[in-house]
Simulated assay, not measured.
Amino acid sequence: RDYHKLMRKRLATLARWIEAEVGPIGYRAFVDSAPVMERALARKAGLGWFGKNAMLLNPKAGSLFFLGELYTDLPLPMDDPFEGEHCGSCSACRTACPTGAIVEDRVVDARACISYLTIELFGAIPERYRKAMGNRVFGCDDCQLVCPYTRFTRATQEADFAPRHDLDRASLLSLFAWGEEEFLEKTAGSPIRRIGYERWLRNLAVGLGNAPWSEAVEAALRARLPYPSDLVREHVRWALARQREKRRALIASS
């Protein structure tokens, strides 16, 4: 199931529990489903502080957790906001960002962020960021993974959050070979589905362009050249040019 729907379901369960205790209330649950200023609300609720990567950091969980909101007309006591910041002189997240998108402490240039480029951007990925993308196809967590507070994170035991269809082990070549029907089938209930098949191929083409040269990669890219999408073809041509450069470099060095 889509984790957004799962979390909203959990919040609705919480609301019904509250109703059982206090009577009928008005409420609405949100998990990435409306323009809610969730990080700012979470800080005011005492859940953490803004790290230098602009993520909400919790001292016991880092930033690897979901934020969900339950709006209600039930009068509730106010929580104390989280006081202070605990990043100190650490700048691991800024150093780790592949594209330098963290331009200042707590300021991220979304136009350079790989998560934005691979998920939110509908058009062509600017060439100046393609090499830095490496093999990232859907998002990027580098700034979170290097954060010292991440070591306190525990892996979830929720089966709904476990990888499906071997997506955690699949090769870029095998994913690039999927047809649209296979893409829709194997991303059902996953946030990946929302980028659509066209941008899926766009992102994979960039990843294959960044891969070490191989005949199989070059052949797979050539096979996609007739694909009926200007967006896909443009990224495939770029990737082919990268692969051919690497092939020539290998020949020259042998």
Rank of each mutant, 00 (worst) to 15 (best):
H4C: 10
R10T: 11
A12E: 12
T13R: 14
L14G: 00
L14R: 03
A15H: 06
E19W: 08
A20N: 08
V22N: 09
V22Q: 14
V22A: 15
P24I: 07
Y27D: 03
Y27Q: 03
R28A: 11
F30I: 12
V31M: 06
D32I: 03
S33G: 13
S33L: 11
S33R: 01
V36S: 00
M37D: 09
E38M: 10
R39E: 08
G48C: 01
W49N: 03
N53W: 03
L56N: 00
L56K: 01
K60T: 09
A61V: 06
L64M: 07
L64W: 15
F65V: 03
E69P: 03
E69I: 12
D73C: 04
P75Y: 14
M78C: 14
G84N: 05
H86K: 13
H86W: 14
S89C: 10
C93Y: 00
T95S: 12
T99Q: 00
G100V: 09
I102F: 00
V103L: 09
D105W: 05
R106A: 15
V108K: 06
I114E: 01
L117W: 04
T118N: 03
I119Y: 04
L121S: 03
F122I: 10
G123H: 04
A124C: 06
I125T: 04
R128W: 12
Y129A: 08
M133S: 00
D141N: 14
D141C: 15
D142S: 13
Q144L: 13
V146I: 14
T150F: 13
F152V: 08
F152R: 10
Q157P: 15
E158I: 07
A159P: 10
A162L: 13
D166S: 12
D166Q: 10
L173T: 04
L173F: 01
G179W: 02
E182T: 11
E185F: 10
K186E: 13
G189A: 12
P191Q: 02
I195Q: 01
G196W: 02
Y197K: 07
W200P: 02
W200L: 04
L204P: 04
L204M: 07
L204R: 06
V206N: 01
G207L: 01
A216W: 00
A220C: 06
L221S: 01
L221M: 05
A223K: 14
R224W: 00
D230K: 15
R233I: 07
A241M: 10
A241R: 08
R244T: 10
R248M: 14
L250K: 13
A252F: 11
